[in-house]
Amino acid sequence: MGETRKIALTVNGKRYAEEVEVRMHLGDFLRQQLGLTGTHLGCEHGVCGACTVLVDGVSARSCLMLAVQADGRELLTVEGIAPNEEELHPLQEAFRDNHGLQCGFCTPGMLTTLIEFLGDNPDPTEREVREAISGNLCRCTGYQGIVAAALDAAQRLKALKQA
């Protein structure tokens, strides 16, 4: 093992203190060291968006950050989106109902990206949704189900807020 460094961070509400190889990117750290394999690596050069996670609430491609750079940060990955073991998050429900996923490999990045986006823009247009996920590649769905799911989720989240 090459040079290492100690880091402490929070992922999905859980605190971790880890010694990490400095050259390891954040995606590998989450997957290999923390066992959070829900974050997927699709290209490792910052194009496909599958590895997107939220760092302090802000989306980032985890293949383009070193794990050491997550020291002191609070992360959300796909495993932390659902409220509990039984229920799904409204965005996840909307993905299921609108067939917003097929093989599921790009899905974690789509979900994290849209969580940030719908937080900023609770009532988006179709065009805005398309641009919001333009940095996330999907080979299965043609995006139509994903766009429908995002628009549907916006309505569900709005209804929840009003309730």
């Binding site: 394999t37 974050t39 799904l88 299921r96």
Partner: peptide, 18 residues
């Protein structure tokens, strides 16, 4: 709605790299 989806949406499905 598909049987496959909940595990995929939670990030707990096991692909080969997992």
């Amino acid at each position: 709605a598909r049987l496959e989806d909940p595990a995929l949406l939670r990030g707990v499905a096991r692909y080969v790299d997992d």
